[in-house]
């Protein structure tokens, strides 16, 4: 009996020690599912290097921001910046730090036609508005000479769940098409004029693969990993650009990034026009400031090397240097 209570006592002490260690050093984050693959790698590597564990829950950007506002986590991952209303409810000033850039690919399934159909922004908007109904529409044919486009109805597929990918895609369409902007607008979920919804990028990719004559948008990783054809986008000057780590980074470099780093880099002057940054959001005043500074710096320096293998683009160096200054201001 005595040995038992001794063991129990030791166990309790050990637990208490673990708990206190957890509260002093470890960080908790939550949010975007889009960054989850690379976040998992960062967290693993960071623990190998420093022994500090970080807990990230991929619950969705909106939920991550809610948790940050409630003060239950140390950092949020989000594919969209916080709105003014959200900032108003927050417990203090926040800073937004872009951690990766993600291209959104336009993918389609037309038997006999592989990667490389060319689209312009307005054509894409008209397809998703339901105004261009057939694959052999003169506007599409004019941009793709030599491609044998069939007279088949276009089957539009979008995301049914709220997502940062949808926010980036609809933000792009709003910039290139006034009609899209007035009729639909941009958000993580919008009221789609046509087409049907698949759950998650995996759901959209599944529908695209099963249905001939479909078109949809998915994160770049999905077209690469599933080997499904994707389009080149007109960057607004007549150049066709394919989604890639380089072209997405170029979009960020050619955009004018605002002081608070909360800029949507869609329809950039150069590079792949349907790209978006994902942000880590933290409070300017944090009880765990030293730990946060260290981890955020790791993400923006060593961590950036992991982006390409996981189909993201890295943050351009000039933005990284601005972020490092902001990180130093966390206290």
């Amino acid at each position: 009996m005595r040995t038992f209570s001794k063991t129990l006592g030791c166990a309790v002490l050990a637990l208490a020690a673990m708990a206190s260690r957890a509260s002093s050093q470890d960080l908790t984050g939550a949010g975007s599912t889009f960054v989850n693959p690379i976040m998992t790698k960062w967290i693993y590597d960071y623990r190998q290097a420093t022994g500090i564990s970080i807990n990230y829950q991929a619950v969705g950007s909106g939920a991550g921001i809610s948790n940050l506002i409630d003060g239950t986590i140390d950092f949020a991952g989000s594919d969209a910046p916080m709105t003014a209303e959200q900032k108003g409810r927050a417990k203090g000033d926040v800073i937004h730090l872009p951690d990766v850039i993600g291209p959104v690919a336009i993918s389609y399934n037309i038997p006999g036609i592989g990667t490389g159909l060319g689209f312009s922004g307005p054509i894409l908007a008209d397809i998703f508005l339901g105004k261009i109904k057939y694959w052999d529409d003169p506007q599409i044919v004019a941009r793709n000479p030599g491609k044998n486009l069939p007279h088949e109805q276009i089957f539009v597929v979008h995301r049914s769940d709220g997502s940062g990918t949808t926010a980036i895609f609809t933000d792009y369409l709003s910039k290139v098409s006034p009609e899209w902007k007035s009729k639909v607008g941009s958000a993580t979920t919008v009221s789609w004029p046509t087409g049907l919804g698949g759950k998650g990028s995996a759901g959209v990719a599944a529908i695209l693969q099963q249905h001939p004559f479909s078109i949809g948008y998915v994160e770049f990783a999905y077209v690469e990993e599933n080997k499904i054809p994707y389009a080149a986008m007109d960057d607004g000057t007549g150049n066709y650009v394919y989604p890639s780590a380089e072209s997405a980074m170029q979009a960020a470099q050619s955009s004018t990034i605002a002081e608070d780093l909360c800029t949507m880099i869609t329809a950039a002057p150069k590079g792949y026009p349907i790209s978006g940054m994902s942000w880590l959001i933290v409070y300017k005043k944090s009880l765990k400031a030293p730990e946060l500074r260290k981890f955020l710096k790791y993400v923006l320096t060593t961590g950036q090397k992991d982006t390409k293998a996981l189909w993201y683009a890295s943050i351009p160096p000039e933005i990284v240097s601005r972020e490092l200054k902001l990180i130093d201001s966390i206290e």
């Binding site: 969705g60 950007s61 709220g162 993580t188 919804g197």
Partner: peptide, 20 residues
């Protein structure tokens, strides 16, 4: 195509905040 009450919650709650 249609939609159900349970489906819309499952699809959209994760990214929603505020009034949404």
């Amino acid at each position: 195509s249609g939609y159900t009450l349970a489906s819309v919650i499952a699809n959209e709650l994760a990214e929603a905040s505020g009034l949404y």
